[in-house]
Structure formats: C-alpha cells, structure tokens
C-alpha cells in the first residue's frame, strides 16, 4: 500500500507539530536577547555561559547526576536480581510480585509523590538526596525489571544448567554465562533508570525541600518566576543528553539482536 498525498500531508503536519516545540527550545537557547523573544535577534552562547556560571544551576546538575547514579545502582541491582527469579516463583506469588513491582508505571505520579512525601516527612527524609534516591529507585525499578525480563525471555535456562554440570558454582554460572548474555538488557534497564531519575519532577517537588534541589526542580522554580532563556539552555542540554543515552540504548539493543 502506498501513502497518498493527503495522508502524507497530514502526517507531515503532525510530525511538524511534534518536533517544532523542541526545535524551538534549542533555537531560543542560542539567542543573544536578554529576555525570551522569537525569532532571536542574534545567536550566541550567552545562556550557556549563564548556566555554566551559576553555582546554583551547577549544584543542581551535579545533584541530579548523583541521585540518578545512585538510583541506577540500586534499581539495577535490585531489579536484575528480582527479574532473574520472578519467572521461577509459583504462579500466584509471581502475579502478586509483578503487580507491586510494575505498579509505579500505572499509579498517577501525584498519588505516588504525596504518599512518599507523607511517609518520608515523618522519617526526616525531606531535603535529603537519600530520600530522592529511595523514591526514584521505586519509580525506576519497573523499567529495569521489564528490560531484564525481556532479555531473560530469550535466554535459554539450559545454558545455566550446562554451566553447572561443567563445574560452575551457582554464582560462577551467573557471572560467566547468565550475566554476559543478559547484559544488554541490564544496561538498557540502567539507562532507563538513569533517565527516569534525571527527568523526575513530581516527587522532587515534594521531597527536595531546600536542601536537595534537583535540576528539574530548579527549572520548575525558575519557570514560575520568569521565563529566562537559561532554562532553554539547560533544557537543550538535557534533551541532547537524553538523546545520547537513548542512542546508546538503541545500539545495545541492536547488538543484542545480532
């Protein structure tokens, strides 16, 4: 079936609608104007310099990277171990465990956020990176479990048995056979976990306090005061960063398929 001109025209318009706002942000970020205006009078790196010259922005950036890295470590290790064993649980237990693990994908963000805020505020975890890491791990785990689970679906359990029959300990069989073969799934899960934490805002709105202001939280705060093109520069950088990570994930998947 060929696409006819009207359909192609409509499709192009929708694609333009999808791409335009993001292209626009990038364009604004290179503006030389002091305030938000379009088209920019001239182009320059003024707002990137403003970003790099701001201690607050940089502190938030490093905090977000740190929180995301810790989230990756926790979510990937807990999620990978769970994914390995989920399939071997009895049916009823498996269904219940999967429902809990995957539910953050379904439960509305605001409900999760205020629930966590409700408990964490009593535990003194507001304004602390630790609280953010604990919460983000719960949000990121579903991506790790599904990604590792997908790798495991293609993994022949007999390979593990073969390794055991050849003298490998359970840990040895996991390290030498299972892990190398599911590694792409683990890495993709880790990338998703990173992006989930790095972009997360709703939980951060409640948990950040004044002591742990993540990058999305700082953008949000700034947006409420004034639309300063520094945000456009930050946004452009995060888009580029995310795209880079996703490109990496895509390559990993391709490699896994070969």
């Amino acid at each position: 079936m060929r696409n006819r001109p009207p359909l192609l025209l409509l499709t192009s318009l929708v694609l333009l609608f999808l791409a335009l706002p993001i292209v626009l942000i990038a364009a604004v970020s290179f503006s030389s104007a002091a305030y938000l205006t379009f088209p920019p009078p001239a182009f320059g790196l003024r707002w990137y310099r403003a970003y790099l010259g701001s201690a607050d922005w940089l502190a938030s950036t490093w905090l977000s990277i740190g929180v995301a890295a810790a989230t990756v470590a926790l979510a990937t290790s807990l999620g990978t171990l769970a994914a390995l064993a989920l399939g071997r649980l009895p049916r009823a237990a498996r269904t219940a465990a999967a429902a809990l693990i995957l539910s953050p994908l379904i439960v509305p963000g605001i409900v999760v956020a205020i629930g966590i805020y409700y408990a964490f505020s009593r535990w003194g975890l507001i304004g602390s990176p630790v609280g953010l890491v604990l919460a983000h791990t719960c949000l990121a785990v579903p991506f790790v479990v599904t990604s590792v689970g997908a790798s495991l679906a293609n993994f022949d359990r007999r390979l593990e048995q073969a390794a055991r029959s050849l003298g490998a300990t359970p840990w040895g069989a996991f390290r030498q056979v299972t892990l190398p073969l599911i590694r792409p799934g683990v890495l993709v899960g880790a990338l998703f976990a990173f992006i989930t934490s790095f972009d997360e805002l709703i939980v951060a709105l409640f948990l950040s306090g004044s002591g742990a202001v993540t990058l999305p939280r700082r953008m949000w705060d700034d947006l409420r005061f004034a639309i300063d093109p520094t945000i456009a520069a930050v946004a452009t950088l995060t888009i580029a960063f995310t795209a880079l990570l996703l490109g990496g994930a895509h390559l990993l998947r391709q490699r896994a398929l070969r």
């Binding site: 048995q161 073969a162 029959s165 050849l166």
Partner: peptide, 20 residues
C-alpha cells in the same frame, strides 16, 4: 550434592553451547 560438584559430563538437547 549440587550439580557442579558431581563431576558428571552432560550433553543437552540443542547442545546448550554458550553463544558468547
């Protein structure tokens, strides 16, 4: 006795060769 301490050779259906 766990499998890895039995010192038994085994050939599996579809061979179970390590693809990596």
């Amino acid at each position: 006795v766990p499998p890895h301490r039995r010192n038994i050779g085994m050939v599996f259906q579809n061979y179970a060769l390590f693809p990596h």
